[in-house]
Amino acid sequence: MLVRLVLEFLGIGLFTYGGGLAMLVLLQDRAEELQWMGPAQFADMIAISQSTPGPIAINLATFVGVVQGGVAGAVAASIAVCVPGVLISLLVSRFLQTFAENPTVVHLLKGIRALVVGLIAMAVFQIAKISILVPEGQGGGLLGIFHPVSLVLLGVFVYGIARWDKHPLVYILLGGVLGVLAY
């Protein structure tokens, strides 16, 4: 159990370029296949990870770890997700000071940085399904698949974030308050 968790997070850590958000699609993929958690719980986990101290990626790994294997799972998953990056950082520090200027690395990162945006967009698409669509089997028609209250809230939030750009925590707390009032 714990071994499986460690192996999965070693893999996730190796293919994460950037941080927490770049990791989302990899996590979603594993969470779905290995039934770590449902999509609603997944969205809640992102909210918690963005609004509590620490790097988002570590918060996500800890959350999955706790759900799967208690505190031992949390420690194992969080350390495992760091190991590939830490090992490469140590190797680079020791042997490859010019790593970042290496042409292959530069070429790779140009594409990967753009690719990661596509990956994040996919994660966002999955979260849209759980946060603004009505559960399957209810509602009908093209517009009927959207939850009207959620759609209005989404518009308000997108406008607010683009306009004022406060810390994510502010919008997440506001979402909680509006949720209690509106649903």
Binding site: D44, A123, S150, L153, G176, V177
Partner: peptide, 14 residues
């Protein structure tokens, strides 16, 4: 209910 609202905020942020 609060979490339902939070999920919409998360979606907007992302």
């Amino acid at each position: 209910k609060a979490l339902q609202g939070v999920r919409v905020a998360v979606l907007a942020l992302l």
